[in-house]
Design a protein around this nucleic acid. Sequence first.
DNA 1: GCTAATGGTTGTACAGTACAACATGACGTA
DNA 2: TACGTCATGTTGTACTGTACAACCATTAGC
Lengths: 145, 145
Amino acid sequence: MADRGESIEVIQREMTVFARRARATAARMHPELSLVSFTLLSHLEDRQGCRATDLAAHYTLDKSTISRQVAALEKAGLVERRQDPADHRVHVLHLTERGVGVLAQVTDSRRIAFRERLAGWSGPDLERFAEYLLRYNAGASDEGP
Amino acid sequence: MADRGESIEVIQREMTVFARRARATAARMHPELSLVSFTLLSHLEDRQGCRATDLAAHYTLDKSTISRQVAALEKAGLVERRQDPADHRVHVLHLTERGVGVLAQVTDSRRIAFRERLAGWSGPDLERFAEYLLRYNAGASDEGP
DNA sequence: GCTAATGGTTGTACAGTACAACATGACGTA
DNA sequence: TACGTCATGTTGTACTGTACAACCATTAGC
């Protein structure tokens, strides 16, 4: 039906539409935890703690940005910084107990929202959609759209 | 393979990853035309001109935001505002010749980038991916993720 | 004609981000 | 061992995108 170029147009446009909305939506859903903070906390949980530099590399954000984000999260009591005894330059970041709790709660309510959002979808469609997104993002090293 | 919940997790996470990157990528690709500006110009071209209020409604942005964005685009010579003779409150927005040109050029280079980005994909996969995105976004009235 | 709604601008504030300058600490080599 | 270089992080500064609220101008409804 659609030719290659057409599909690409659509993907481009719809990805863009999505991007434009995501941040605002996240903010509306969770005034207490922005999309950025959420992803940082997730990563921290995933890795069971890591350095600021790792976060910066993983999300291609400037280290100053991370520094301030982390400072805010620390101030909010969601994250704590432990000096690495082996290298005194390094602060290893860990979720606090409270951080774990908040993250769990937000993750949960996000999951619920997405579940509802995707309620009309068949299992195989969901699976394929997820697959495509993974594939798309996996290919997005750092310079593609 | 994956159950429903798992797929939803993935979609949620990957959409988020994408969202986090899109803006920065657009900025890197086109320092002269942000993602926001780009979408506004596209809409203007699509509609062959429209009012600021229409843009605000379509993108669920505050009218003040639109006002300033449009002001910037006007200053950059990409858009012009024509007073509606029938209703003196209204400014109808139109692309200038230069606006059309810049939009075309950016659209083009975006298309090229996406084409490259999706080079390894089969036609049917592209088609289905596009379809899913459309479906997803179409359902995203205004409160879902 | 007066009141309410609509379209838009301006003041203000905030988040997220980058870049550059800097401080501190670690490490390798002469 | 001391010096230069690299790595980690923080701070100063500036810009974009955004919202909300107050406001002005104009139109529409009763």
